[in-house]
């Protein structure tokens, strides 16, 4: 502890809100050197497109985690909305199908929120139960079969279209991020959200509508999950209610990696999006280097551990005590 001030400033920068940027720079430099093929415009476009799904659902999940909760049912909601879209396209057309999927997911989000606020069940167990229920509903709705809409190539717009060379999923991600960021930092909702997340009792006493905020946050996770569903259908033109198994956990992973605290009260949407791109770089980079998806999962797990370890050990002692 010789250069205490120096260590302090450096570690504050590295472990603070901007840790994810440092991590991002290091990892992407690493892959840029090892796999130069990753740096071509096409491959970068791929990286961003495959980051879109987790980035969008991560933005919604950031709200739930800022509240100090989780939404484990996001995967089931995503799967259900893909089924709704795919089954309705032939008869109702694409716009109406997508609208209905959004309606269904808003409903799911409201139900999640009501269960959490009215029945006072912890978010973890509540969404664990609704995850099973929603999946069951999806399976009954589809009869457990995959629904294909290969004939409806116009649905491809959501994954293939480009505006000024930028793929639509990337633009959608940016739009979702901007809207969420606006809600988070510029609106009353964001203030209420942070207040409810950091100290629920105090927020209630200060007349913050905690229950409404909770319901809204879970609607946000459901709606963003549905948006990921739209892009998924558009990419593969099939839907199956039993997909989405690790979807919620992936979203939670990017949110945490991005620097949102699990204890609630402070979310970091920018970090979530960057972390989603980071994961995508790792996945695409490892594929280019010829590794299978087992190694990808291994690396993602290790990076999660490593980044939180670095954070813990670099956080100055004084701050640690305050945090405790």
């Amino acid at each position: 502890m010789k250069n205490k001030i120096n260590v302090y400033t450096v570690s504050r920068f590295v472990t603070g809100k901007y840790f994810i940027f440092v991590l991002f720079a290091v990892v992407s430099a690493f892959f840029a050197m090892l796999a130069p093929a990753l740096c071509t415009p096409d491959s970068l476009r791929n990286v961003l497109v495959s980051a879109a799904l987790t980035a969008i659902s991560g933005c919604g999940m950031t709200f739930a985690i800022t509240l100090g909760g989780f939404d484990l049912s996001a995967g089931s909601i995503m799967a259900l909305s893909t089924c709704v879209i795919a089954s309705m396209i032939p008869e109702a057309g694409i716009p109406l199908a997508i609208l209905s999927a959004f309606a269904v997911s808003v409903l799911a989000g409201v139900i999640n929120g009501l269960i959490i606020t009215k029945l006072r069940i912890q978010t973890f167990v509540a969404t664990l139960a609704t995850q099973v229920i929603i999946k069951g509903l999806g399976l009954i709705y589809t009869g457990g079969l995959s629904i294909s809409v290969f004939g409806y190539t116009r649905m491809k717009v959501f994954s293939n279209a480009q505006i000024l060379g930028i793929p639509l999923p990337v633009i959608l991600t940016a739009a979702v991020f901007l809207v969420c960021q606006f809600l988070y930092s510029q609106c009353k909702f964001g203030v209420y959200l942070r207040a409810s997340g950091s100290n629920r009792k105090a927020a209630e006493l200060s007349a913050v509508p905690v229950e409404k905020v909770t319901i809204c946050a879970f609607v946000m996770t459901a709606v963003t999950a549905c948006m990921s569903g739209v892009i998924t259908v558009s990419q593969v033109l099939t839907a199956n209610a039993s997909t989405g198994g690790s979807f919620a956990l992936n979203a939670i992973t990017v949110v945490v990696l991005g620097g949102t605290s699990l204890s609630g009260g402070s979310g970091f949407l920018g970090g979530t999006v960057i972390a989603a791109v980071l994961i995508s770089i790792i996945e695409n980079g490892l594929i280019l280097l010829g590794y299978s998806d087992d190694i990808q999962r291994l690396v993602i797990g290790l990076i999660l551990i490593a980044s939180l370890t670095v954070k813990t050990f670099m956080t100055p002692l004084a701050e640690k005590e305050v945090a405790e």
């Binding site: 939670i252 999962r297 797990g301 999660l304 551990i305 813990t312």
Partner: peptide
């Protein structure tokens, strides 16, 4: 001092891999 949820989530990826 990694929250249990995250630590074991990471382990969830690593062990399966």
């Amino acid at each position: 001092r990694i929250p249990a949820f995250i630590a074991t989530l990471a382990a969830f990826y690593v062990f399966r891999a």
